[in-house]
Nucleic acid binder design. Sequence first.
RNA 1: GGCCCCAUCGUCUAGCGGUGUGGACGCGGCCCUCUCAAGGCUGAAACACGAGUUCAAUUCUCGUUGGGGUCACCA
Length: 540
Amino acid sequence: MKNELVEKLVGSDVKDISYWEQKFPPRKEGTIVTRFAPSPTGFAHIGNIYTSMLAEKFAHQNNGVFILRIEDTDGKRRVEGAVDVIVNSLKEFNIHIDEGALDEQGHEKGSYGPYFQSSRQEIYLSGIKHLLEKGLAYPCFTTEEELEQIRKEQTALKLRPGYYGKWAKSRNLTEEQIADNLKTGKTFVFRFKANGDWNQKRFYTDAFRGKISMPENDMDVVILKSDGLPTYHFAHIIDDHFMRTSHVMRTDEWLASLPLHVQMFEAFEWELPSYVHGAPIQKLDDGNKRKLSKRKDPEANVAFYLEEGYPIEAVKEYLMNLLNSNFEDYKKANPVKPLETFELKLENLSVSGPLLDMKKLENISKEFIATLSSSELFNRWYAWAKTYDKALQKRLEDNKEYVLKILGIERDGFEKVRKDFYKMSAIWNDVIYFFEDPRHSEQSEEPTPLNQKLLQDLIASYNEAHTKDEWFENIKRIAEQNGFALNGKDFKAEPQKYKGTISDVAGFFRQQITGRAQTPDLYAIMQILGKEKVLKRLEK
RNA sequence: GGCCCCAUCGUCUAGCGGUGUGGACGCGGCCCUCUCAAGGCUGAAACACGAGUUCAAUUCUCGUUGGGGUCACCA
């Protein structure tokens, strides 16, 4: 295409592509460069964390560079403050960005930017200019209505829908026709001139899936929209080339457009990056797998894990497990080593989308919280309450020593720590009986005469100064006096002889004092509660 | 529908021609025990189906079925 016409199409001040080639020189040979490239929709998806963990880990374990690129080329999607949502969630998950985020001075880090696609327009135009000159792109004046018409015809004829071959009306316009169209002020887009043959298969390479045979691309896709911004396909080529991305890591929904992308890299005669198409996290819905949906599934939202108060370390550990299942073995062998020391391998990635298993997450969470000291747990709980539960925050402040004791039950100094906490939002309910008399919340039945007797005996003999052993002895005595077996064997041998076992007695006292059938060690609870509260709960 | 990806316990997976299909979560049992949790032991639970290749297929090939993705001026 003639220079004069090209200038009319893209503007006369558009730089030659070689300018950018110099401005963004290749990085040091062999540098691993990955990127996370979300579109700012205002929603941070757990899948985003999953994918960026992969990309970041892969880059950093190879001393590489991890870039955050904002794909904000769709005006309809753009949401105020959305970038903060993404950046903050990455920060929460301790995913370190080398380029693309802001530094302390508020400047973008990295010298391959700008990293917002909306600010890279002149680079894209240079790319368009280059393709126009080579005859590998063309302006397309086909209207949306015409497009719709074409699609209808194709469907009627049972043909593949799309802008290709003879259906690509604007493909072979003469320069005069183009100039005429411009004069009349018609809006237009730029399309890539595909040179592929759809009947021709070719192998494409995915760095972990291997060779994939697919038909060549013959669709003349839109690469620059009428608003002057590029489509994903074009931005991907330009950005990942000039940012010198070595590994394009994305979910497998992009696999289908790999032939197009390869074709465009070849059109520019640029080196192809390695492609890694991972599988997105799924969920079981009515027996069928589907991607986690931001509308239907609260657990799709990163904010969910923060609000519920799952320890970030646990969530990351779980996601790492999904990414490389051998991480579980590594963790077992190296329980105290940080996640960063694990070497992730591409060949261990999952090919089919894993289902999110909250039970497994809860388990990992329990294990993690069990490694915390009472003061560490307190600090986390407090930090959580500060943002998500002001009333709780106040209570924690007012009762810090008391709470510390509660959290310390069977924890500090214990070889085998209890594992009943798995998220911050649920702790309060687990310890509420330390603050509220359970009898007010539960309509306990009128005690039987036997139970009355047991209570009287306990009240009469209760001594706060008792050691744990002395307390046991006391309970045993009460049980025995009231006709309970001291162990299960005696009871099993002669069940008719007893009213029950000592377990029933202890269980009854537990119920009376805490309102629960399941609590930590009752002696520890009573010590923390103090004589006054204990006796009050036993009375009646 | 075309094209592509995928297929081992309910879930995450190990396996890479010869294994009693191993582990983890969850579930059940037993033991320990004043209770609960933990812990120890243990049980149930899978190679989608059909051909072929081979002395031998979970493993290799093809097909069927099933699931997923993709076919926009969205990414």
